[in-house]
Design a protein around this nucleic acid. Sequence first.
RNA 1: CGGGAUGUAGCGCAGUUGGUAGCGCACUACGUUCGGGACGUAGGAGUCGCGUGUUCGAGUCACGUCAUCCCGACCA
Length: 492
Amino acid sequence: MAIELKNLTKRSEDYSKWYNELVVKADLAEQSDVRGCMVIKPYGYAIWEKMQKVLDDMFKETGVQNAYFPLLIPKSFLSREAEHVEGFAKECAVVTHYRLKTNETHDGVIVDPAAKLEEELIIRPTSETIIWNTYKNWINSYRDLPILCNQWCNVMRWEMRTRLFLRTSEFLWQEGHTAHATREEAEKRAKLMLKIYAKFAEEYMAVPVIQGVKSETERFAGALDTYTIEAMMQDGKALQSGTSHFLGQNFGKAFDVQFLNKENKPEYAWATSWGVSTRLMGALIMTHSDDNGLVLPPALAPIQVVIIPIGKSDQMPMLDEKAAEIVESLKTLGVSVKYDNADNKRPGFKFADYELKGVPVRLVLGARDLEKGLVEVMRRDTLEKENVSIEGIAEYIKNLLNDIQKNIYKKAVDYRDAHIYECDNYEEFKEKVKNGGFFLCHWDGTEETEAKIKEDTQATIRCVPYMYEQTPGTDMVSGKPAKHRVLIARAY
RNA sequence: CGGGAUGUAGCGCAGUUGGUAGCGCACUACGUUCGGGACGUAGGAGUCGCGUGUUCGAGUCACGUCAUCCCGACCA
């Protein structure tokens, strides 16, 4: 496998270029030849799989079950909910025909005009419509509720500009869709799922997030409320990392999903939907990585420890044997470990390569050190090396992994907190926001103000955050009394 | 869909006044190496994005076309 490892662009030189190179060179993914799509390579997919597994378990603990719904959505479904269709219409891929035929010169194929579909099919950009069309058949009584379904799938949105993981035309995600008998229960579910996303981001990805609720203009198309987690990348820009929507009865009404409540009265079902996508991979990469490459949190690293032997060829059998013991003891403690004794790569190459791939801990098993009963341990987050006794090495590493997980989280929290500013002066804001960061500002709640900020600075209201106090104040643009204290930032 | 740029080997690039294709990395083989991205020798690999035109002759000039990237608008 040919990978150009050297000359990774520095993070500070060109953040965007650094990110792109990193994704490709760390062997996570590459741009596909097919417009705006991405190939996720085995190493990148292994991280995604780990994320999936953890999230899936967290969902199931709250009673959610997995299901699967069709890829293709009849065009008419999409138009049932007016706001929803307006939100997605501009980025839908449409299936219009169902057959090809060879062309007249027999050296290619053309779309058979005779095979035109009577009703076009949309490749799902999200599945609310097809799922609620299905729920109609599942729901008759309050006893059928709640329905708590999740599906892991791909969706397609015909984006103008794409970026690996952050915005691709096709992406992988999970989308949960729940139906409830009461408003309260649905709202509670939407908030619960946001909590789960926040917990996952912070405890597993080691990415601190700010939870909050979206302003009306930033809301999901068709939702009454959109809850969000916002993370700060190392260039100070915000990345919306997960959303949970309270959809009210909009889809219940649009798809005529009625049930008889306890009072024997017909009522429309209440809905939520929530999702996180492969965009989380982007968040993971942009939060922790440095100029040497990826830094993965131990909780999600496909390989937590790599062992590299160094010695003359006649010493290798002895090193192999010793390594096998260490591998065994690590596996017993549930640590995933790779022993790389490939003889076609030199040690220096391997060091650089595993650093680039973000493996949290590296052990160097050298013939010299081994005589003294020592092994060199390097932690990826700080790049610090130390010699450790082989006796009890597994426990030592287990603790070290926990330490790394905590340390990179703390580092990310510190970085973020150092770049959050309270600001109620618009001139100051306009100047400062160019350099990134999150701004806590008072907002009068009007769309006009929101639009002006966006036009002047490209920054948007990310959310009304929960974790910061809602102090009274005046809007920095209009000077009117503030309705909320909001988080404003430039975003991906 | 606006503004800018670029298409030459898997990747990154050079290619002069038009004269028949080159460099670095990667790849293959052999040898020497192996404690922080090794070196030598020998190889393989290209319809120069596509089309038309000008010309004895086009990677190079003209026109057209397609694609990609960057900056906007849109967005998880």
